[in-house]
């Protein structure tokens, strides 16, 4: 079995993000970058499926050369090789990312294309579904369990109101939710091994992708800040405030 999996680089999910004064982007000085947490779940799922079913895991990312560090982190988790599409993150929208990844799928022809359900920087939650439609493949998003049997993936999905199970015939597109697994930490030997694993760089032009955007970001600003209130000393005082001041009881 062959699995293609996304390894998107994001800003440290726990970092405090600040907008540049001129509104053209975010302050990147001193920011650290990590693998998107949901992509880590997807990579863990891909690597453990291949440990069970044998085959190959190919990690794919989009970005400038500096995202290769995070692609190597995916290789250190056990992916066999990496592909980077060379175009800056700022030049993408969800649709362009999806059209690029659909072309990578067509070149690689995996049995399964795994994604993180959402990148924690853009928060759009679109790319998996867009790729599935562009490729006319079945999708199973927000997966908290994946079982491969008889040529299909049986997927438990985290949805409003409960848990849904659907089955999608391979090849299929699946996005990982947080409860899917606990991503492994790469061991030092695997980190060293990852440095020698093959990493291919392609361009949107080489893939025949038109880089025109459908959604353009015009400006960024900080949200209105909520002012902290007061500290109450006792439960009784809290209840009085809620009743008399907030009129919330």
């Amino acid at each position: 079995m062959k699995i293609l999996v996304t390894a998107k680089r994001v800003t440290d999910p726990d970092a405090k993000i600040r907008v540049k004064p001129d509104g053209t982007g975010i302050e990147t000085a001193g920011l650290e970058y990590k693998l998107n947490p949901f992509c880590e779940n997807a990579i863990e799922a891909a690597v453990s499926l291949i440990e069970k079913h044998t085959g190959e895991v190919v990690a794919v990312t989009i970005g400038n050369a500096d995202v290769e560090q995070n692609l190597r982190a995916a290789l250190a988790m056990g992916c066999d090789r990496g592909i980077r599409i060379d175009i800056a993150d700022e030049q993408l929208d969800s649709d362009l990312a999806a059209r690029i990844l659909a072309k990578v799928y067509e070149a690689e022809k995996p049995d399964l294309f795994l994604f993180g359900k959402q990148a924690v920087d853009g928060d759009s939650n679109q790319v998996t579904q867009l790729v599935a439609e562009y490729l006319d493949l079945p999708q199973a998003c927000f997966a908290s369990s994946i079982t491969i049997e008889n040529g299909e993936a049986v997927v438990l999905r985290e949805v409003d109101g409960g848990l849904e199970t659907i089955a999608v015939k391979l090849p299929a597109v699946i996005s990982a939710d947080l409860r899917l697994n606990t991503p492994r930490l790469p061991t030092l030997p695997n980190v060293l091994k990852a440095k020698r694993k093959p990493l291919q760089v392609l361009t949107p032009a080489a893939l025949g992708v038109d880089t025109a955007l459908k959604v353009a970001t015009v400006s960024y600003e900080a949200p209105p800040q909520r002012k902290g209130g007061i500290k109450v000393k006792t439960v009784q005082e809290l209840v009085e405030k809620l009743r008399d001041e907030a009129k919330a009881l």
Binding site: S124, Q129, E133, C141, D160
Partner: peptide, 22 residues
Amino acid sequence: STFTRDLLPRVAARLGAGMVSE
């Protein structure tokens, strides 16, 4: 919702539309 987050991007791709989330 989880229903529309799953569905709308697919609609967008099929319509050739850009999608704005949230």
